[in-house]
């Protein structure tokens, strides 16, 4: 359960203040599938980074599963990123020198799992995204869609309860985009919460709830089917 209350984040660009987030309040229950939409520069990624504990808000409170994020140590935040949350980025963010297998294994290494357990989970995740036969490929030897699937496998490997995806289909053709969306829907069906940022109206329409952000503020929230 994510509870954001009056979150503000301001960047200082020279003399001018940029209010990337200007009082965002949002509750995302466990297992929800939420799409965040809005124009470029409206603060979507900033919000996502706050939710993912990659960044901290300047003002407001963020409660994750009942705990105030502000009170957590750096180590606790690291553990949350490692165990509770799986990230999927627009630029995939795979480590270029590692193979698909090693990329997926990495968060499990940081968890301190045994070799056998890592192997089992890594193969399981890669199989799930349909890349069991590409395990030894480096990212450069994979297509964009395949790279994003490796990234999904990496996010999945730790069995997170929440998956954060910042424009996961933004760099992909529509066919690959559809495949990725199907995977996310399947993950949501397993009970994992998904927060997804997109510009694509079709992608947004796949979510249960759409949150529209403009100028760092929530403009509208809408459930699937148009209900407010």
């Amino acid at each position: 359960m994510i509870e954001l209350t009056d979150i503000k984040k301001t960047y200082l660009m020279g003399e001018t203040e940029v209010h990337a987030l200007n009082g965002v309040s949002l509750v995302i229950p466990d297992g929800a599938f939420v799409a965040i939409i809005g124009p470029s520069g409206s603060g979507k990624s900033t919000l996502m980074n706050v939710i993912g504990c990659l960044d901290v808000a300047d003002e407001g409170t963020y409660k994750l599963d009942g705990q105030y994020v502000k009170d957590m140590t750096e180590r606790q935040l690291g553990t949350i990123r490692n165990q509770k949350i799986g990230f999927i980025f627009q630029q995939f963010n795979l480590l270029p020198k590692l193979t698909a297998y090693e990329n997926v294994e990495l968060p499990l290494i940081y968890q301190g799992l045994s070799h056998d357990e890592r192997k089992q989970r890594t193969i399981e995740s890669l199989t799930k995204v349909g890349l069991a036969d590409r395990m030894d490929h480096k990212p450069t030897e994979l297509s964009g869609g395949q790279q994003q699937r490796v990234a999904i496998a990496r996010a999945l490997a730790t069995h997170p309860t929440l998956i954060l995806a910042d424009e996961p289909t933004g760099n992909l053709d529509s066919q690959s985009g559809k495949e990725i969306m199907q995977m996310l829907k399947d993950l949501n069906a397993e009970g994992r919460g998904i927060v997804l940022i997109t510009h694509d109206t079709w992608v947004a329409s796949q979510a249960d709830e759409q949150v529209r952000i403009v100028d760092g503020q929530i403009e509208t929230k809408g459930r699937k089917g148009g209900a407010q």
Partner: peptide, 16 residues
């Protein structure tokens, strides 16, 4: 730097 960012995003601790 970017590699470090990725590692931290997927759960590397400062000590790691």
């Amino acid at each position: 730097t970017r590699e470090i960012g990725i590692r931290k995003a997927i759960g590397a601790q400062k000590s790691d």
